[in-house]
Design a protein around this nucleic acid. Structure first.
Lengths: 162, 162
DNA sequence: GATGAAAAAATTTGCGG
DNA sequence: CCGCAAATTTTTTCATC
């Protein structure tokens, strides 16, 4: 039963104990929860929560907090992925710069496999997607071809478990 | 110049004014920033910030807050996407349930295009990815084939702009 | 709808175990 | 390293504009 291969864990994540894990899980669900509330929940003092969170920030485990915005509430109905193939591998930085200028591109990955670059798109509707694809993305000279995966739903969305 | 096609916006996102946008941008960068600090920054009273945030929560624009954990700091070095094709379209719910049980699956999308299901994976190293793929994912009976896109880097990662 | 002031609550610090 | 308790800061309320 090596369900938990804790060998390398001990090396990499230096001393993240149960309390740290509990705090991280709680903050993943609600980053603005009061430390006093967590203190009650985990039967320690508020100061301890504070010290632990500061340490997790200092070690880089916590790399920020953010509000989650609902794309649909803001009028963004369409989510899709686009796999991009370049004419030449060296064109990567130039293409990336052009993609970064498009606010609809929310994520970009440099990948091995079927595509050179893989991006995630959020836009208002299919018409906007059409325009974006034809006028903005396929217009980028160094792009050879694209392949679009339209997302119909996202049944799973979560962070890694601490 | 229809850079900003504000026509439907007015309908969908009911009255999100400039202050709301500024607040959202600030909270995207740091969800724990003090309302008093935002009040100073935007030259309004703390009470106004409070009222606006509550309204944005109530209308569903803000759907939560969370700490961002750095996968690498937790020992998760590998990020990849896997495109999955099913033997039969109706197998979708069964496969999804099995994917949900794997903590390494952080995102799943039901897609049109080359794949039926598209998932994002976070795991510790290539060996773990290998085991996950062979022992856990390809072992799912309803899966016909998989295609792996290994992410070498993620140069863009952001939310939509309010 | 926004504000200012007041009340309530939380964060943060430093001393002592 | 933890906890207590005080000092500071913040959140939150509410009457008023």
């Amino acid at each position: 039963m090596n369900q938990q291969n804790t060998q390398e864990n001990e090396l990499l994540r230096q001393r993240i104990d149960n309390l740290d894990k509990q705090i991280l899980v709680a903050l993943q669900q609600d980053a603005r929860v009061a430390y006093a509330e967590l203190a009650k929940r985990f039967a320690v003092s508020p100061a301890t929560i504070h010290v632990r969170v500061e340490k997790l920030k200092a070690t880089g485990v916590i790399c920020g907090t953010q509000v989650m915005l609902d794309p649909r509430a803001l009028g963004y109905q369409v989510c899709c992925f686009i796999g991009i193939n370049l004419k030449a591998a060296g064109d990567y930085p130039a293409v990336l710069a052009q993609l970064e200028a498009l606010p609809e591109v929310t994520e970009a990955y440099y990948t091995t496999g079927h595509y050179s670059i893989f991006i995630k798109i959020r836009c208002r509707n299919i018409d906007d997607l059409h325009r974006l694809l034809v006028d903005q993305i396929q217009a980028i000279k160094q792009i050879q071809s694209t392949e679009t995966l339209l997302s119909l739903s996202q049944p799973i969305g979560r962070q890694i478990q601490p």
